[in-house]
Computed example of a mutant assay.
Amino acid sequence: MSMTVAGAKIALEGVIIKTQKSIEREVAYLKELADDKATLSHIEQMQADGEPLPDNNPYGSFSEWRDAIEKEIKTGQNSLDRIEIEKAELMAFNYFMETAPEA
């Protein structure tokens, strides 16, 4: 089945909105990533200083805690990498929407 330019533009309208909303979360991801990196640094400093795990810590060891934070950092970075791709996609979508002839 062949799609017309007009049909493609209609289909992309929802995709553009969804992509824009995803990109808007970039600031939150950046803040979360900075917080996670600060937490990782704090964990490493606590461990180097020989401090015990905090009483309310859900992890059994510094190693478990560090692994969990490193996983969160990786996840956050993956989200930011995805947003960079979405920015490029949005540029392409908008270019198509503005320049593709419908006839």
Rank of each mutant, 00 (worst) to 15 (best):
I43D: 07
Y29H: 13
E44S: 06
Q47R: 15
Q45T: 13
D81Q: 06
G60L: 05
Q77F: 05
I43S: 05
E64K: 08
K18E: 12
F96C: 00
S2N: 14
A88H: 07
T19A: 02
K9L: 04
F96W: 04
L80H: 08
E26R: 10
E98I: 03
E98C: 01
D55H: 01
S2H: 08
E72D: 15
T4Y: 06
W65L: 12
G60M: 07
K74I: 06
L12Y: 09
K87Y: 11
I73Y: 04
G76F: 07
I10T: 11
A6M: 12
R82S: 15
S61L: 08
G14D: 08
N78H: 10
L90M: 03
A38R: 14
V15L: 08
K37E: 14
E32F: 13
I73K: 07
Q45G: 00
E24G: 03
A11F: 12
I83Y: 04
T99H: 12
E26W: 02
I23D: 03
T19H: 03
M3P: 03
T19M: 01
P101F: 10
M97Y: 02
A38E: 15
I43E: 06
P58T: 05
I83M: 02
M91Q: 11
E84G: 03
Q47T: 08
Q20N: 11
V5A: 05
L90F: 04
L80P: 01
E102R: 09
M97R: 03
A88R: 13
I85M: 12
D67L: 11
D35S: 09
G14P: 03
N78F: 05
I85W: 09
S41M: 11
D35T: 08
N56V: 07
K18H: 13
S2R: 14
M3N: 14
V5I: 14
M1K: 13
I10S: 12
A68R: 15
K21I: 01
I10N: 04
D36E: 14
D55V: 10
P101C: 02
Y59R: 02
E26N: 07
L53I: 02
D49E: 15
T4P: 00
E98Y: 04
L33M: 06
M91I: 04
V5F: 02
A28W: 11
E64S: 13
Q77A: 11
E26Q: 09
E70D: 05
S2P: 06
N57Y: 01
I16F: 04
F93G: 00
L80T: 05
A48E: 12
G76W: 00
E13R: 13
K31H: 15
L80E: 02
G60S: 12
A48L: 12
M46E: 13
S61P: 04
R82C: 08
E70M: 10
L53N: 09
R82H: 08
D81V: 03
M97E: 04
Q45E: 14
I17S: 10
Q20W: 03
A11Y: 07
R25V: 03
I85G: 09
T39V: 09
D49A: 13
A6T: 14
K18Q: 13
N56T: 09
A34G: 01
I10P: 01
A28G: 07
I85F: 11
R66C: 00
L53G: 02
R25K: 15
H42Y: 14
T19S: 06
P52I: 04
D36F: 12
A100R: 00
A48V: 04
G7V: 05
I43C: 09
A38M: 10
N94G: 00
G7N: 01
M91W: 08
